[in-house]
Design a binder for these strands. Structure first.
Length: 433
DNA sequence: TTTTGAGTTGTTCGA
DNA sequence: GTCGAACAACTCAAA
């Protein structure tokens, strides 16, 4: 056995401009690139045709091909990382492991465990910032504490940003340090217990879409958003490249959305309990109705409110929902139906291609009112007014919920004015000191 | 320490 | 139809 370095890919599924890979390639030993299908995560997925697993598999196929072109190969494993790593160490003489940092609670725990194990084996575990421009402790208040309000965080984020932060890592210059070996077995989706999903995946060429983003982003019938969430989730594009392009085009509004992404990642890192509990504890006093039939109707897009139903159908069919509509359906679930935001959060987690724990939790807590810097509780979206403002010609609704073209319209699951009064009363009571 | 200004995305009501 | 105020205080950030 000859000594090697391992670069472990997780949610950074690309070979270009990859911090961990770059540093691994510049180390002393040839680099083997590894991916583990994590059984701990996959066994929880309800759908054997989960589109995200298909997407990962597709991306790994590309990476495998690129590595083969350079005389190397991707090593793919399936199982629990804590069991896989000892096995890898038996097969290879591993001198060091390189990976990009992942900030979710599960990932932190997994990586802390691995670090401990590797150290006990005398192996270095090097981790790098790659997923974000600024990590949890790089944009903080003068007193050293994390921000909980977006706007001051955003201002300092912009002020801190320099050309250095968006410089890409020229990994391809060092591909000659990839471990040379015969192609290793490449599992099919079936091998790991999944089947091909039907969904289509958005492209990574977002550049043209930045132009009219701020004027058009609120109209769900217009295809004006970049659909980059999925690629940022799995690291199939580099955040540095993306931010650089936003700067180049002066796409400030769009850039601010990228800052929201880092804001919520930072929040989840400092307040990991907010994945399960209200960020503002008093909101856990709300007595939710949690009616299961109404929840089912919401999931299926059968609430009788056109924009809510269209949004849920789009989600169910494509794994995507337009941002404006996400807010409307979330507000509707929490406020009109008085269903716990966690139910909605879990449903989005199951369905969204671009699902990211920190943003999803942040968004749901915002809509519910329980989040940091959230919408005030008395702000109840009016689905009819939102429809009139943002889909006045009903193009979006007709596309996803064509039954609204018919003369007999579905009955609303609950009257708006009644629901509004009800939620204001329930919230007011729960939030009383 | 105290003070001051501000805080993602909205709705309703009444003039 | 349009406009401004009220909605409810509270907490955060920074001077």
């Amino acid at each position: 056995m000859k000594p090697i370095t391992i670069c472990w890919l997780r949610r950074d599924l690309r070979l270009e401009d990859n911090a961990a890979l770059y540093h691994a390639l510049k180390s002393n030993y040839p680099v083997l690139v590894v991916f583990i299908f994590d059984e701990n995560i996959l066994q929880k997925l309800a759908n054997r045709a989960d589109a995200r697993v298909t997407f990962i598999h597709q991306q790994l196929t590309k990476i495998h091909a690129a590595l083969q072109k350079n005389g190397s190969s991707l090593l793919i494993k399936y199982g629990k990382p804590e069991e896989i790593w000892p096995a890898i160490l038996k097969d290879y003489e591993v001198k060091a492991v390189y990976a990009n940092r992942d900030y979710e609670p599960y990932a932190r725990k997994r990586d802390d465990g691995l670090a401990e194990f590797l150290i006990s084996e005398g192996i270095n575990f090097h981790t790098f910032k790659d997923q974000v421009i600024f990590e949890k402790d790089e944009v903080i208040k003068a007193d050293g504490k994390p921000y909980t309000v977006f706007t001051p965080y955003y201002r300092l984020w912009l002020k801190t940003l320099t050309d250095f932060h968006v410089q890409s890592y020229p990994t391809e210059k060092y591909f000659n340090n990839l471990l040379q070996l015969e192609p290793l077995p490449f599992p099919t989706l079936k091998d790991i217990g999944f089947v091909q999903a039907q969904q289509k995946f958005p492209a990574t060429n977002f550049e043209l879409r930045l132009k009219n983003y701020d004027q058009q982003r609120d109209y769900p019938a217009v295809d004006a958003t970049t659909r980059l969430g999925l690629h940022l989730r799995f690291g199939t594009v580099s955040i540095r490249r993306v931010v650089k392009e936003a700067q180049r085009q002066g796409a400030d509004k769009w850039l601010s959305e990228l800052v929201w992404r880092e804001f919520y990642m930072m929040i989840l890192w400092h307040f990991p309990h907010s994945a399960q509990q209200a960020f503002k504890p008093v909101y856990d006093n709300i007595i939710w109705r949690n009616n299961e039939q109404e929840f089912k109707a919401w999931c299926e897009g059968k609430t009788g409110y056109p924009i809510v139903d269209a949004g849920m159908r789009q989600l169910n069919e494509t794994g995507f929902m337009h941002n404006r509509v996400r807010m409307v359906v979330a507000s509707f679930l929490c406020k009109h139906l008085l269903i716990d935001w966690r139910w909605g959060e879990a449903y989005f987690a199951e369905k969204l291609l671009d699902y990211d724990l920190s943003s999803n939790v942040g968004g749901w807590q915002w809509a519910c009112g329980s989040g940091n810097d959230a919408a005030p509780y008395f702000r109840v979206f009016n689905p009819a007014l939102q429809l009139k403002k943002f889909d006045p010609k009903m193009e979006y609704v007709y596309k996803w919920a064509p039954e609204y073209k018919l003369p007999t319209l579905p009955m609303p699951i609950v009257d708006h004015t009644f629901a509004r009064d009800r939620v204001l009363k329930v919230y007011k009571k729960a939030l009383q000191p």
